[in-house]
Write a protein that binds this DNA or RNA. Structure first.
Lengths: 154, 154
DNA sequence: GTCATGACGTTACTATATAACCTTGCCGCC
DNA sequence: GGCGGCAAGGTTATATAGTAACGTCATGAC
């Protein structure tokens, strides 16, 4: 499944522009640059990796806080998700009504595919409700091996 | 739901002794102490919190590695689970055939209740299979508010 | 007893994240 | 246009989390 990644990035940026405009949120130059760097692959990227890219682009050191603040904004807007089990961030392909999807994280290639499966959501909601627990933010991160990697290493 | 927590701890240690004996795994003094410290509450505890306890008990500084190694062992044996979204560890109330449960993490009291819901498991497995993804280790950590805390703050 | 192995100690280091405080620049408003 | 307010971003320092490399000691097999 070869894909033209520049499309992914361009699309993500376009959607982000639209969404922020619509919401009156300020997608500043810095935030947009960080978003672009998060999207540089489909692999979750650590804050410090992004920090390095940023520093290199600018030819001078950037402070961690700069990146963390931008990421915080992007996560709030649902443009980026944090992968807790990796301490890393990945672009959201379908931002919109703020959601919290599930992630299939491949041990082979490192890609994190986002899915939003209603059954999984429902099962979690039901299990929680049965215990009187009110769900605010479900986190589902599944480690395993993606289809492509299975085919490569049979 | 007041509960005699010393029971939880004692039970956990007894089960751990039995399980390790059965498996030929060495639950050394250090590992047992760390397990006990993890169990000091039902809240996930950070490695460094445990480290401090340990250092204080001994009256001298303990190195992080000491704790991390013990935790690694306990996690491998399924006696303790790591809560990824908190970088913290919590005792497993039902160790045995190695499992990966789901956690209901309360924002109020900080308690992490472990549940092992077959529906949730199945839904994740199905969603992954539909995408050709082979599941190795699912992580489910649900943030929200537990029953007790809801009743306290209505 | 000897030896292999695994547990633990020690030192140093890397990675991830936040605190406190200040400066800048944008925006609405008069 | 200028002014006041506020959010964004810069700066410095520090907290928290996790590993690497290497040595020593205890335990059990033989």
């Amino acid at each position: 499944m070869p894909h033209d990644h520049s499309h992914c990035v361009a699309d993500a940026l376009t959607r982000a522009d639209a969404l922020c405009a619509e919401r009156g949120a300020r997608l500043t130059t810095l935030r947009r640059r960080v978003l672009e760097l998060v999207w540089s692959s489909h692999r979750p990227r650590g804050a410090y990796a992004i920090l390095e890219d940023l520093s290199q682009q600018d030819g001078k050191a950037t402070a961690p806080l700069t990146v963390y603040r931008a990421l915080e904004f992007l996560v709030e807007q649902g443009l980026v998700h944090r992968i807790e089990s990796l301490n890393a961030y990945v672009g959201c392909a379908a931002p919109g009504p703020t959601h919290s999807g599930q992630f299939l994280v491949c041990e082979g290639c490192g890609d994190a595919a986002e899915v939003d499966d209603p059954q999984v959501r429902a099962a979690i909601e039901t299990a929680a409700a049965a215990r009187g627990f009110r769900v605010q933010r479900p986190t589902v991160e599944v480690r395993g091996v993606c289809k492509a990697c299975q085919e490569k290493h049979p």
